[in-house]
């Protein structure tokens, strides 16, 4: 569906690359997460993939066709949600969507239905300048859905949203995937990536560090351990057992038989811990 081959990009047109040797493939209907801290090169890759930035070296192929040779009609098939809301502040939320829908050559969704999906129906006729950051973020998100795209590029789609709204946005992304839409998700939020993505790529200083499904990454880089909370001498105690270790495994079984166990949690690594392990730095 979508193939990125040995992508390089330099903003200074020399060998100081913002992105170097980035290659990956995304299958139809897959949610692919691009995870990395600010300045890692995530947006640069997305901008090249959406044609906003000129392709300098390497290639981006959509169904085998290079982005160098695609026409304006290609944009009928993609939807792009930006991290920083970019709207006509003088227009209302509804007018912003209505105007944008008029740019496409394909059937578009009803703007009011989309606004309703993200809880903006009541504010549909307010000017975008009066929207909060979260409202603008939601408006930009549904604008990307207007043309019922085959490929969605989402840059930090839940940034600045309250947990309820973020959950609603995540549900919409999952439903789009179920409809067969391919999603390229750029984020530094490991929970969002973990929850939504079929596969993730870690990007650090313009290079892909590792790429796999969140589960495989956790299995590969995490420790197989469990944390047990149990009652002893009228107090809550806790202990971590590494199940690969024979002695720990034995003691864990003994504890299950002898004590009043209150909670047991598996201790697989989070994506953030794996990222730190691989790059030596956090995702923020």
């Amino acid at each position: 569906m979508l193939k990125v081959k040995e992508l390089y990009h330099s903003y200074t047109n020399d060998d100081r690359y913002a992105v170097q040797n980035v290659s990956f493939e995304i299958q139809r209907g897959e949610i692919f997460g691009f995870l990395g801290p600010s300045g890692a090169g995530k947006s640069t890759v997305q901008n090249i993939m959406t044609g906003l930035l000129k392709l300098q070296r390497g290639d981006v192929l959509y169904e085998g066709k290079s982005i160098k040779n695609i026409s304006a009609k290609f944009f009928n098939r993609i939807g792009v949600s930006f991290e920083h809301p970019n709207l006509y502040n003088k227009l209302t939320g509804y007018e912003n969507l209505k105007y944008y829908a008029g740019l496409f050559d394909v059937p578009t969704d009803d703007p009011m239905r989309l606004l309703d999906m993200v809880g903006l129906r009541a504010d549909a006729h307010k000017r975008a300048s009066a929207y909060s950051k979260g409202m603008k973020q939601r408006l930009v998100f549904v604008r990307a859905l207007l043309n019922r795209p085959d490929i969605l590029f989402l840059d930090e789609p839940t940034s600045g949203l309250d947990p309820n709204t973020a959950s609603r946005v995540k549900d919409i992304i999952i439903s789009k995937k179920e409809e067969g839409c391919t999603v390229f998700l750029t984020t530094h939020n490991m929970f969002v990536a973990d929850e939504l993505c079929d596969r993730v790529a870690f990007l650090n200083e313009g290079k892909i560090v590792t790429m796999d499904s969140p589960r495989n990454l956790k299995l590969k880089y995490g420790d197989k351990s469990v944390k047990v909370e149990y009652m002893h001498n009228n107090a809550v105690n806790s202990r971590i057992f590494f199940l690969d270790d024979e002695r720990d495994r034995k003691e864990f079984n003994e504890l299950l038989d002898s004590r009043e166990v209150q909670t047991i949690h598996s201790q697989e690594a989070t994506l953030e811990q794996i990222f730190i392990k691989l790059t030596g730095k956090g995702l923020k």
């Binding site: 959406t50 044609g51 906003l52 304006a72 009609k73 290609f74 944009f75 009928n76 993609i78 792009v80 930006f82 920083h84 809301p85 970019n86 709207l87 006509y88 502040n89 944008y100 740019l103 496409f104 050559d105 930009v140 604008r143």
Partner: peptide, 14 residues
């Protein structure tokens, strides 16, 4: 300033 021109660039508008 609004950035709306970036959104236009990723539409079929020429």
């Amino acid at each position: 300033e609004e950035g709306s021109i970036r959104a236009y660039r990723v539409s079929p508008g020429g």
